[in-house]
Simulated assay, not measured.
Amino acid sequence: MRVFGKTTSYWLEKCGGTLCGGFVFILFFTIIKPEYYSYKELIKEFPSIGMCAFGFMLTFLGIILQGDSSTIKYMKSRPVLYDKFIAYNKIVVILSLIISIYSYILGYAKIAIDISSVIPYYSYFKDIFIALFWGLATKLLIDICIFVRLFYLLLK
């Protein structure tokens, strides 16, 4: 099926993670209204997950770029798919680093229960911080799935 002259796979690769992350952000900010303290432990533990993804993707990229096996030579012989593969690897590595640092800061931040009298709209900021975490985590998950899909397309 084509949308605006491009396949649905193209649009999924281009915008899938961002759209899903934006949808989850809006969902958490408007409907779910997350409470910081109910997610604090999960957010504090996320850096270990993000850093594992970060290390795995960098190791994987190093193996692919420096490898000389027949499979890797075949991967490099398909430049369009190979370039997409490298670009997605970069996206996932950078995103996993950013969200790991963000969740580390958010997990160990001391967010006061109610200082809304001092800072107007403070409760909205708390909701935005939590919703942004879930939106970024969703984008990371979708981008990792697309990366794995590209990897298997390269191996076909």
Results as ranks from 00 to 15, higher is better:
W11C: 02
L12Q: 06
L12I: 06
E13Q: 13
E13F: 10
E13R: 15
K14H: 02
K14D: 04
K14P: 00
C15R: 11
G16E: 08
G16W: 09
G17I: 09
G17S: 10
T18P: 00
T18K: 09
T18M: 12
L19Y: 07
L19T: 10
G21S: 09
G22K: 03
F23E: 00
I26Q: 05
L27D: 06
F28I: 01
F29T: 02
T30E: 08
T30P: 00
T30K: 11
I31Y: 13
I31F: 14
I31Q: 10
I32E: 05
I32W: 07
K33A: 02
K33I: 09
P34E: 06
E35T: 13
E35W: 02
Y36V: 10
S38V: 15
S38L: 14
Y39V: 08
K40M: 05
K40S: 00
E41T: 11
K44I: 03
K44V: 00
K44L: 03
K44A: 01
F46L: 10
F46K: 03
I49T: 12
I49E: 02
I49F: 12
G50K: 07
G50E: 08
M51F: 12
C52Y: 11
F54H: 08
G55K: 06
G55Q: 07
G55N: 11
F56Y: 14
L58I: 12
T59F: 14
T59H: 06
T59S: 15
F60V: 01
F60T: 05
L61E: 13
L61G: 03
I63D: 04
I64F: 03
I64C: 07
Q66S: 14
Q66Y: 02
G67S: 07
G67E: 12
S69G: 13
S70I: 13
T71H: 06
I72T: 02
K73N: 14
K73C: 02
K73G: 00
K73F: 04
Y74K: 14
M75D: 03
M75H: 13
K76C: 03
S77I: 08
S77F: 06
S77C: 04
S77N: 15
R78Q: 14
R78H: 13
P79N: 09
P79L: 08
P79F: 09
P79G: 04
V80N: 13
Y82V: 07
D83Y: 07
D83W: 04
K84P: 01
F85E: 01
I86W: 07
Y88V: 00
Y88H: 11
Y88C: 00
N89S: 15
N89P: 03
K90M: 11
K90A: 09
K90E: 12
I91W: 07
I91N: 12
V92Q: 05
V92G: 04
V92K: 04
V92H: 03
V92L: 15
V93F: 09
I94F: 14
L95M: 15
L95H: 15
L95S: 12
S96W: 08
I98N: 06
S100M: 01
Y104D: 00
I105W: 07
I105M: 11
I105D: 01
I105Y: 07
L106W: 02
L106K: 04
G107Q: 10
G107R: 09
A109Q: 07
K110M: 07
I111M: 10
I111H: 02
A112V: 06
A112C: 03
A112Q: 10
A112G: 01
I113D: 14
I115L: 12
I115H: 09
S116I: 02
S116R: 05
S117R: 15
S117T: 14
S117A: 11
V118G: 00
I119D: 02
I119M: 07
